[in-house]
């Protein structure tokens, strides 16, 4: 990540959700969904956010594109601080970012045609003035996502399309404003296994061709290999390990990453009699997470220090950071 242009930088980003106990109680609690995340992403690169349900990966994704406003920390986009921008600046940021959601069936207003759904972003940002140009852009975007012939799809309603087709439209909608960064929040987890790889290939190809920064949120380590340069393993609002995808998969250091990798099914008949070691217990409640390492209650390698103090991020190898005391040089 040397000569490339820095697209996005997160510094100690936190997103805590307020929950009020009751009508009269003044005490407020927080769900610490994202609790101190830092990383950076270069232009045209993809990073995978991997973690199980409730690890805060979706919240992080939505905070990055400012669907949520962070409680603290900074988001630097193209050298500009976008952490708390408002109004016109926020509108600009909306144009520079795109979102592909998990559920393609719910991602479209059922009373809009595909054409209308794709026209909305163009109308809102008024980047394309004339109706003809808008139609041209919409057809181009549909071609990009291989929904051809475009006329067949443009005037249909969402319920007439399959999940895979809808997800392609969702991608078209995300790229129609020519953004620099796209957050893809589990884009294939609701699709049939048969179309998953098509969608991912499409997304990857678009990312390379349009030099998009992509934040790929998934719980499936297997697809990250195929998709991204970088991988971030999240657990209970913390990034436990970050490195290049190759490195994480080949040489997982954090006990949690190892557990995740173990849980990934491998199509090998010999596995049928092997027992997989999975860490016991459940992820902690994010209202009151452990003050120390958040994985410590479930960690098979935990020792005294793990239960007392939160580990910093150690660079265990070049470009390979781990938030674990096992790698602390002390």
């Amino acid at each position: 990540m040397s000569s490339d242009v820095r697209l996005l930088e997160l510094e100690d980003l936190r997103k805590w959700f307020e929950i009020r106990r009751g009508f009269l109680s003044s005490k407020t609690n927080y769900v610490k969904a994202v609790d101190g995340v830092s990383f950076s992403l270069d232009e045209g690169k993809a990073v995978s956010l991997v973690g199980e349900s409730g690890s805060g990966k979706t919240t992080l994704g939505k905070t990055i594109i400012r669907l949520y406003e962070p409680n603290s920390g900074r988001i630097i986009f193209q050298g500009k601080d976008v952490t708390h921008i408002r109004a016109n600046e926020l509108k600009w940021y909306r144009r520079m970012t795109g979102l592909v959601q998990q559920d393609p069936f719910g991602a479209f207003a059922s009373h809009f045609t595909i054409f209308r759904s794709l026209e909305e972003p163009l109308l809102i940002h008024n980047t394309v003035k004339s109706k003809e140009e808008r139609a041209e852009r919409i057809f181009k975007a549909l071609e990009e996502v291989r929904l051809t012939p475009v006329e067949d799809f443009a005037y249909k309603y969402p319920h007439m399309l399959s999940g895979g087709q809808l997800q392609r439209v969702a991608i078209a909608r995300a790229i129609i404003l020519e953004p620099k960064l796209i957050v893809a929040d589990e884009p294939v987890s609701m699709l049939d296994a048969s179309v998953r790889i098509e969608i991912l290939t499409l997304l990857r190809r678009l990312q390379e061709r349009l030099r998009l920064g992509v934040i790929y949120i998934t719980h499936d380590l297997a697809t990250t290999r195929f998709f991204s340069e970088w991988a971030l393993i999240m657990y209970a609002g913390h990034v436990m390990e970050k490195a290049s995808t190759q490195e994480v998969l080949r040489n997982p250091l954090h006990p949690y990453t190892r557990a995740l990798l173990t849980a990934t099914p491998e199509p090998n008949p010999e596995n049928r009699n092997r027992f997989k070691e999975v860490p016991p217990g459940e992820p902690p409640a994010l209202i009151d997470p452990p003050k120390s390492c958040r994985f410590s209650p479930r960690c098979p390698h935990a020792f005294d220090k793990c239960f007392k103090e939160e580990p910093p991020e150690f660079e265990a190898a070049s470009g390979h950071w781990v938030k674990c005391w096992l790698y602390g040089r002390s």
Partner: peptide
């Protein structure tokens, strides 16, 4: 709470819209 509202917010639709 429908996803399409969130999607619209992500591409910049105003509250009124």
């Amino acid at each position: 709470s429908y996803p399409y509202i969130e999607a619209a917010q992500a591409y910049g639709a105003s509250n009124l819209r």
